[in-house]
Every structure is written in structure tokens, then in C-alpha cells.
Amino acid sequence: MNPFRYVKATSPADALARMGRNPGARFVAGGTTLLDLMKLGVETPDVLIDINHLGLDGITEDRHGLHIGAHVSNTDLAEHDSVKKKWPVMSQAILAGASTQLRNMATVGGNLLQGNRCGYFRDVAMPCNRRDPGTGCGALGEQPGVEGINRYCAVLGTSPSCIAAHPSDMCVALVAVDAKVKISSPAFDRLERAEDFFRLPGDTPQIQTRLGPDELITGIELPELPAGARSMYLKVRDRTSYAYALTSAAVVLTLDAKGRIDHARVALGGVGSVPWRSHEAENALLSSPPTEEAFRAAAEAAFAGAVPYQYNGFKIALGQDTLVRVLNELVRPGAGERP
């Protein structure tokens, strides 16, 4: 780990001022991503600005929804009574990620900036455009026909520069519930839709979000879900717990009086370069009856533009089946989630 200076910010304005004076600085909250990446040499800040004491750790509820401070821990958000009752998809997604210890440390603000899990990104000896622009994409491989270890990589939203998958569970749910990210800069405060917060890699994979270098995440807003909404998160992984998603799906759904789908939000995890909102799947679902055929058609639409690589082609079928399973569970609860 590089040597750095450590300072404790006392307010959002103080944190931003300190950041303004130190271009090489990083904010540290829970530390679960940043310290990990610093140990790997991927992050080498010369100043750490501790933002654990900015007074951003409250959750308040009003008629618009839930206002969550950026420093609320993953655990506190997942265990919040209103979240469990009204946004179960959020609670489920958070509890599907990492371990209790890490969820106790991690903050919702930090989670929006969770470090990438691609093995090439995390290994400074390997090529990675996301980490070191211009070095190549190790996961795509150095020579044709010899791709890297890309089983965990994305099939949606990739580019020739980067095929890494976004690793978050919580962010997938945030996209599905139309959450907004509250951002402060020295000049003004703004709200960004969670869906827009994340940037596709394109030819600048090193820029992963729309958060500016002089900006600070101060909170998240969860708007009320439509009346009668059902929501669910399901994750498929290599072991029963404490593993990143191969595929996941977060869905919010309402049915009209005739039993047709009149609101659908579909977000996919493990398969996209960013937490993947599938407008294609939503469009296929809208006005349809909640049948297996409609679900299957939505899943196929979601992955119509998918590009498989050498070791991750299975994610297309698995991603589709994951989404179909969630949709089925939402309309016929308990049909199959037993052992």
C-alpha cells in the first residue's frame, strides 16, 4: 500500500473542500472496496478523506419515499422495516451480497462505487483498459482464439475495450426501483437516476460512473413503488452464499384489474457492464398477461443484443432463466424456491 495522509472530514462541504485541494485524494467510507484495491495497488491515493462522520447516516420516510444517507450501512438499509415491507427487492439484493461482516462495514454510497471484480482489473501485472487505459483487455485475450479467464465477464454492454461485469447486487435493485442518487459538489447539489449513474465502458472504461472528481454521493432516494407492486431479487452463484453473481435479476411488477402487467421494471446483475436495466424486457412485459410465454419472450428480448465470449456464453441462457424464474415467483409465489 502506498503511503498516504489521512484526514477526517467533518461535513460534506469540508469533505468537498479537502478533495478540491487534493486531486490525488480518495474518499473512504466503509473501506471494503477502497482498502482492498489499495492493497492490490490498483488504487494509490496520496490522501484519504474519511467521510464516516458527515452526519449522513439517517433514513427518513415521507410521502415521496425513503431518503437514505450515503453513510447508512448495507445492513441497516436491508434490515429497515419499511425497506423490508415496501422495497423487499432492495433488502433481498443487499442480503444476497457479501457477508454480514462486510454488509456491516459497507455503506450504500460506497456500494454505488463498488470495485470491479474482473481478475485482470485487480491484478496490476495484467493488461486492463479499465485500470490502465491503453494496456488492452486481458479478459478478451492477447491473441485471437486465446481469450482470458472471462467466465464471470459481461455479455451485455461490453466493448472491445472492456468486458468486465458489474459486480453489485444492491445497485441492480436500485435500478429496478427507480432510485435516485443524491450528489453534492462545491457548486450545487443534483439528483441522478441510478440507471444513468453508471457508464458503459465504450472506449473509456476507466470512467465508470457519472460522478465527477469534485463530487460526493450524499444519499439515495427510493421513490414509492406503484400501489400493489411486487418485487423480488434472485441471484445465481457458484456457491450457496458469499459469492458474486453469475446472474441475477431484480424485478418490480404490478398487475392491472384484468391481471395484465401494467408496470414492470427489470434490472439484471452479473451479465452487464453496468447494473443492466432492460427496457426491452419491460416493453415485452407491459400489457401482457403474466404467462410463462410472456416471461420467456421478455427474457429473450432482454438478451437479444447479448455478445458471448469464450467462457461466459452460458450467462445468456442462465440470465434468461433467472429472469423467468423471478417473474414466475412474483406471480406464483413459492413455486420453486425451496431447498
Binding site: 466503509g30 473501506g31 471494503t32 482498502l35 482492498d36 464516516n52 445492513t75 457477508s99 461482516q101 462486510l102
Partner: peptide, 13 residues
């Protein structure tokens, strides 16, 4: 009173 992984946090924090 919360369990954490002490390897991913700094003493100074």
C-alpha cells in the same frame, strides 16, 4: 457491537 472484518478498515478510522 457489530461484527466486521478488521482487515478492511484502518486503525485510524
Amino acid at each position: 457491537d457489530r461484527r466486521i472484518d478488521s482487515c478492511l478498515t484502518l486503525a485510524v478510522m
